[in-house]
Design a protein around this nucleic acid. Structure first.
Lengths: 164, 164
DNA sequence: GTGTACCTGCAACCAGCTCGCAAGTACGGT
DNA sequence: ACCGTACTTGCGAGCTGGTTGCAGGTACAC
């Protein structure tokens, strides 16, 4: 799978500045718990487990995989609970979810770079450089008045490796 | 719903050149039938009904709505048949389908402009100008090597009307 | 006209996701 | 430290969008 689906490898030296910016996020476990409480939500063991799983896994991840990771911290956690937790975290502003073509939606921490491209061949997920995203958003805004929200959708195509 | 979901209204004078270009397509019913035969596919009454419905309805449309329109030409046509017909037409290259967020996929004739934006508020569908699309595709290609296929996904955000 | 391979209608099925409900638990109040 | 209540969770049923297996029908080559 993609660069961001394997939490054990980092390979930071192979990545550009914009790629590393994509992986950075503004949330720690404490900040997230604080944000939850600020919204009148309780900080429960299942929610903490989902948050820890999200923090461990940089990059977009689908709910079944996220559940398996959260299960490491909270055995027996139910997938429906993870769906509800993700919805709660989205309301609070900690995560967003993107729809990448046919498959399930992908959950990710609400970071600074917000647009990803999914390979139709191998399913890998790659970030799109911030300057390209900016050009798209401002270009669309100026020509049509449409305000794009890059955190809520994904681009599709063929990645460099599969195209070769 | 959006500008392209109501086949009875045209309002051409309110639209820009790029918008009208979006509505033009390269297919007539005869050309499409020819393309089907060239691929070894039979030209049946249900398929003709779906094609006529697509030609009547400029712009993206989901399968349930397309089925209702096709039913006008071929009463009793089954939704599963329309799904299969759309898949066949996609193989032949007559249509593409885009995934627009949460809802069903949208089917459209394989025309000249390939990227649309869907309003999360009102569901309206607007084309993105060709120059913005080109900048996105070439910018992504040059910086990451990723080959985007704008015909297969949609952008999301808030349209000018809803933003106001 | 005839045969056959493809296509259609139908219903069952599947994936992704949501919901209703009873049991459990975080946390403000005391 | 304890209690009470309102929020959360696990669980299973259910919903939506889409696919598939199969028996019967039909386009089209001959």
């Amino acid at each position: 799978m993609g660069h961001f689906t394997d939490p054990t490898r980092q390979n930071v030296n192979m990545r550009t500045e914009s790629v590393r910016a994509f992986e950075r996020h503004a949330w720690s476990a404490d900040q997230a718990a604080e944000a939850l409480r600020a919204h009148g939500c309780r900080v429960t063991r299942p929610r903490t487990a989902v948050l820890r799983a999200l923090l461990e896994h940089d990059g977009p991840i689908d709910v079944p995989a996220l559940t398996r990771m959260a299960e490491f911290h909270e055995p027996g956690i139910h997938e429906a609970t993870v769906y509800r937790t993700v919805a709660t975290l989205a309301e609070v502003g900690i995560v967003t979810h993107v729809h990448a073509g046919h498959g399930p939606a992908l959950v990710r921490l609400h970071g600074d770079v917000a647009l990803v491209a999914v390979c139709q061949d191998c399913g890998s997920i790659e970030p799109v450089p911030a300057e390209v995203v900016d050009a798209l958003v401002t270009g669309t805004l100026l020509t049509t008045g449409f305000v794009l929200e890059p955190g809520h959708f994904a681009l599709e195509g063929i990645c460099a490796a599969c195209a070769a």
